[in-house]
Design a binder for these strands. Sequence first.
DNA 1: ACCTGAACACCGTTCAAGT
DNA 2: ACCTGAACACCGTTCAAGT
Lengths: 216, 216
Amino acid sequence: MEQTRIQGKHAGLQRDQILRTALALVDRDGVSGLSMRRLARELGIEAMTLYHHVKNKDALEDALVEHVLAEYVTAESIHRIDGRVSWQDALKGYARDFHHALESHPGAVALFATRSAITSRNLRALEMLIGTLVNAGFTSAQALRIVHATAIAVIGQHATARHDVGADLESFGEDLPLVREAFGTDWSDLEARVNFMVSSLVAGYDRYLSGTSGLG
Amino acid sequence: MEQTRIQGKHAGLQRDQILRTALALVDRDGVSGLSMRRLARELGIEAMTLYHHVKNKDALEDALVEHVLAEYVTAESIHRIDGRVSWQDALKGYARDFHHALESHPGAVALFATRSAITSRNLRALEMLIGTLVNAGFTSAQALRIVHATAIAVIGQHATARHDVGADLESFGEDLPLVREAFGTDWSDLEARVNFMVSSLVAGYDRYLSGTSGLG
DNA sequence: ACCTGAACACCGTTCAAGT
DNA sequence: ACCTGAACACCGTTCAAGT
């Protein structure tokens, strides 16, 4: 699968190939395993060559976030579930797509936790979602808060999915009966926790519809 | 304010002093400004001396999270608002304390985004909160999910508070009218966003009370 | 027991030089 | 236009040695 290329001439490095390789690196070793030098080695080039294609490491990570999200959350995917379904289902569909994007790249989740999920490329999807919510009677300001909060719910659940609380609990002996019981029951199912939080949010948003005086 | 000490003898370094200095460093320069070498310089010692007091940098950051949280969220603070108020207000009080903790150390927020907010020291507060919710009719598993989701809401809002979406919007010209309108209205008020999300969650949790068959 | 200095194996990024 | 090598100013951490 090696690409033959003329020595000294350009390596045919596409930005997309850099992102795919970086993502594979992150999937394998996590965010801490991603370095410019390591990525370059993986690509068979010098580290400094990367700076010709991305501004710096920060921009690379931004692009990575955009890339992961774009696999599942697009204006098209929003449009597909839009119009025919309730705003509740449109929002849950958005959350499900987001969930699948993060699920397919668990190593990249940490990147989402520290930078904006609202990437410029995904603003079109945001525009459509806000449109759906405004049609249902929310103000645009409320709609933005709703979509943002929903995204936080999905990211936050994924970001805290890896933590092993069992170890912490060990060191506490016979105390904390309720905590112990709670962690024993249902805890490990990430998708269930995502659904629980998103459903609770959606149920709560409803209140703001009846709370406002008008509907339009 | 220099502490005189016998040369070569121990520097009287308390773990607490290390944490306070580390926190000051993070408050000033953010998480990226925190390094073992820099922290040591700030303390007037060699970097390697730190390893006598904390296992490694990861353990230091865990301790920092615990330290920030402990200033506002304790079993005592939970107990104060517990018993006399509804589970809704107890939960909102917990969220408010959490919010204040993060508000007082914005530079440390990034640490919360990547590690468990459920530190061993704060498990007692968690036990009390779950107790309140169980008394109200939730199962312990539901109660844990509820507290966890509430913590995620507060952390997530703080973690995304710094992002400047305005710059992203510039590059999109005349498009995206709803997004533009939404960001123009209400967006910059972090506390309002936290309250909105926590209130929505609490309103949604209610559904799970009437949804279950029994109350006990 | 507590602290240190040198050393190891890394980082991101700049810059002048190569083809 | 695209790529490189050396260099700069950093990292976290280990380990043998000092008092």
